[in-house]
Write a protein that binds this DNA or RNA. Sequence first.
DNA 1: GGTGAAATTTACGGGGC
DNA 2: GCCCCGTAAATTTCACC
Lengths: 156, 156
Amino acid sequence: MKLSQDIVTIDGIDKEILRDLMQDARKPILEIARKIGISGAAIHQRLRKLESSGLIAGSKFVINPKKLGYATMAFIGIYLDKAMRNPEAVKQLREIPEVLECHYTTGNWSILIKILCKDNEHLMNVLNHKVQSIEGVSRTETFISLNQQIDRQISL
Amino acid sequence: MKLSQDIVTIDGIDKEILRDLMQDARKPILEIARKIGISGAAIHQRLRKLESSGLIAGSKFVINPKKLGYATMAFIGIYLDKAMRNPEAVKQLREIPEVLECHYTTGNWSILIKILCKDNEHLMNVLNHKVQSIEGVSRTETFISLNQQIDRQISL
DNA sequence: GGTGAAATTTACGGGGC
DNA sequence: GCCCCGTAAATTTCACC
């Protein structure tokens, strides 16, 4: 088991395996094996090593939120009164299911969040009744994503 | 086959299946079946329906970028000279592998991107030599993510 | 690291209810 | 919409090189 701070080195075969699975997590290992030209067992043990190294964080089904009526994504920059209140504010942000990401950031804001709502009215409700009511939040700046053109992971 | 604009309605069993697979795309269907208490075939045909409805967009292996030395995430607001140049600018942003997301946004900027680099120096290089050199980009504002506290999908 | 084969478990599809 | 069942395929582990 590698230590958490270690950097993992991978070769071309690892990259090929990961590229395939990053695109489709349920792609059969044997199919990848046939394509690359090594045995399924070899890929299996490479994956086990990559998992235990921590490079593979997991796998996810990806849902299309629009199909559930969630069509409004927005980024919200948050100004906090005191930097010391940050952990408590994050804890409360975590309780808001519409919040998908939360970053401590450099620059104007203390925190930047990504939020997913059904529509503008829903967004307004979340902003006014949930985000703004968190203690320490003094002001917010909202940027609605009119259209997401790129969405991908790190390229190997 | 449902039309693209249709909203999909799902019941509690669908939610349970999806919640499991959103957390681990390789979780065996039979395991989910045993947990829920219905047959694997039932889950199988529910998944087929959810896929053809477009609600399931796919599946992904999730990589931990820090293990490859990518430790600096940043959001960059981009001002463009002319709104008409947007499609061309996005096309060029797509060629920059460090760019993970790209959104047309309301507010100050024309575009907001999320970027992933190894360190601050790498980020500076991408900004100065790749992003800033795109025609139409007049100014940028950078917000470095010091720490990402929340990262999740829509909750069902 | 890799192979190849055996054993186990899953995925998949049809027919019935 | 779900179950049972048969077939095909995938996963996983093993001894061996």
